[in-house]
Amino acid sequence: MTALADVPEILSNVPGTYPYGVWRRRHPRLLARIRDAHLYPPHLRDALDALCEETVQGVITALPRTAHDHGTWDAWCREHLGKPWPDAPFLWAEGYFYRRLLEAVDYFRPGPWFGHDPFGFLKTEDLQGYAPEPLDDDLPEPERAQQLLLGSLWGNLNDLGFKVGGEHAGADAVGLVADESAAVWGVLRRDAGLALVVVADNAGQEIIADLILIDFLLATGRAGTVALHVKPQPTFVSDATTSDVHTALRLLPAPVADRLRAAAGAGRLTLDTHAFYCAPYPYDRAPADLLATFAAADLTILKGDLNYRRLVGDRHWPATTPIVTAAGYFPGRFVTLRTLKSDALVGVAPDTLAALDATGEPWRTTATHALVQTNLTPG
């Protein structure tokens, strides 16, 4: 275990807190929208209603014995079975909620709903009428690089789980609470030829911005190779899967899409995934093969709020804690690009923290603020 174990985990059982609202408002609204959007038969509609009732008023129960992965989840659930859902760690409970949701809609069961993304209709709605803004090729390269990095960062606003729940929907970007982007470009120099891992977050507009950034990194030789990691199955509403990447590819400007296809054909751009990306735990519990992948990369880019929570353990760190303290266990150099949509936070300067807290606004959970943080010299 790491230093993560010495800091209390964030729970969901305190009325008035952000995690409490996720169980009381976001998840019931999400389940209702999924039920009403599909031609589900009565038993699947009943299963969604039962999941809603269990998570709001009941206690955590196990996956059915017919589930293909019930043995794995039995081990992960052992210490939480019989607890009210909000009494389990927030990160763990959310991960299990989304696994239970897929079970409720027969995602893994052979039949008409096998492999059907229950969030697909929301992803489609979000992209209706959307087209990426034209790229400004006349900008000096350093300015263009920063523009694309910030585009990828603020693309994380497009989190459909956040929107479905109604939490500050349509929030506007305000600013960065920490900005180490200069250090990022100090590593990602032109023609550096680095081996990058990019751990994606959301589909739709965010993955489009990510692909545009990846194209730039490959085209300028800053990256020699990029392994884009996506989720192995739909989860957290809009987390990107392989299918979502290809939907995004079709919406990219033709020159960008063509270059990305050529990079894939040359082995410079690959899509990858790992079962642990849908596990309910921080990265300090990742299996050896995934940790080895991070260790072998010259740099890992971790996108979004969920990856940040997994990086720092979704715990009540004092916000001024250096990120190297919270995530020093990570086995390679990393940069994390995240808009703030939950409570976990480290690496904020004391004066910045004081100024933000003085506003009286819930700035940690409104997606109005963001950060670029790094550890470029991991121990």
Rank of each mutant, 00 (worst) to 15 (best):
3 A>D: 14
10 I>M: 00
343 D>E: 11
90 F>Q: 04
54 E>W: 12
23 W>G: 01
213 L>S: 03
84 P>L: 13
25 R>T: 15
105 V>Y: 04
140 P>G: 07
359 T>C: 00
77 C>T: 08
298 D>R: 06
376 L>M: 03
52 C>D: 11
222 R>K: 10
19 P>T: 03
136 D>A: 12
142 P>F: 00
205 Q>V: 13
39 L>D: 15
16 G>D: 12
260 L>K: 04
272 D>G: 08
91 L>F: 01
183 A>F: 07
124 T>G: 09
28 P>Q: 06
37 A>N: 02
24 R>N: 09
158 N>L: 06
181 S>Q: 09
9 E>R: 14
372 V>M: 14
216 F>T: 05
349 A>D: 12
167 E>F: 13
244 D>G: 00
2 T>L: 09
94 E>Q: 15
347 G>D: 03
258 D>K: 01
359 T>R: 03
264 A>M: 14
203 A>K: 12
321 T>N: 05
366 T>K: 03
217 L>I: 03
227 A>P: 05
175 G>Y: 03
63 L>G: 05
267 G>K: 06
230 V>T: 05
118 P>A: 10
370 A>D: 08
355 A>R: 01
60 I>R: 08
155 G>L: 01
79 E>S: 13
297 A>G: 05
126 D>T: 12
94 E>Y: 09
172 D>I: 10
356 L>W: 01
371 L>V: 06
43 H>S: 14
284 D>Q: 04
141 E>V: 15
30 L>E: 05
344 A>H: 07
240 A>I: 11
96 Y>F: 14
322 P>E: 05
286 A>I: 10
184 V>E: 10
276 F>H: 10
286 A>K: 04
184 V>S: 14
351 D>F: 00
123 K>A: 01
42 P>W: 06
333 R>Q: 07
13 N>P: 10
369 H>R: 01
202 N>M: 06
285 R>N: 11
97 F>Q: 02
316 H>S: 13
70 H>D: 12
146 Q>C: 11
202 N>D: 07
346 V>A: 07
169 A>D: 15
106 D>C: 10
348 V>Y: 00
198 V>L: 14
240 A>P: 04
7 V>Q: 09
228 L>H: 05
221 G>K: 13
370 A>P: 10
229 H>V: 11
13 N>S: 10
155 G>W: 00
289 D>S: 10
138 D>S: 15
62 A>R: 15
94 E>S: 07
170 G>H: 03
125 E>T: 09
165 G>I: 04
265 G>N: 09
376 L>G: 06
301 I>R: 02
70 H>R: 15
323 I>M: 11
209 A>G: 09
325 T>C: 14
152 S>R: 00
304 G>W: 00
200 A>Y: 09
219 A>M: 15
358 A>H: 00
363 W>V: 01
264 A>Q: 12
326 A>D: 13
71 G>V: 12
283 Y>E: 12
12 S>T: 00
114 F>S: 14
36 D>E: 13
186 G>S: 02
297 A>R: 00
309 R>P: 02
294 F>L: 08
348 V>R: 02
58 G>T: 08
371 L>E: 05
2 T>I: 08
221 G>L: 13
145 A>F: 11
33 R>V: 15
286 A>N: 06
373 Q>V: 04
25 R>D: 14
371 L>A: 14
119 F>D: 01
87 D>W: 04
278 C>W: 09
73 W>N: 03
171 A>C: 08
50 A>Y: 02
8 P>K: 04
221 G>F: 13
200 A>C: 08
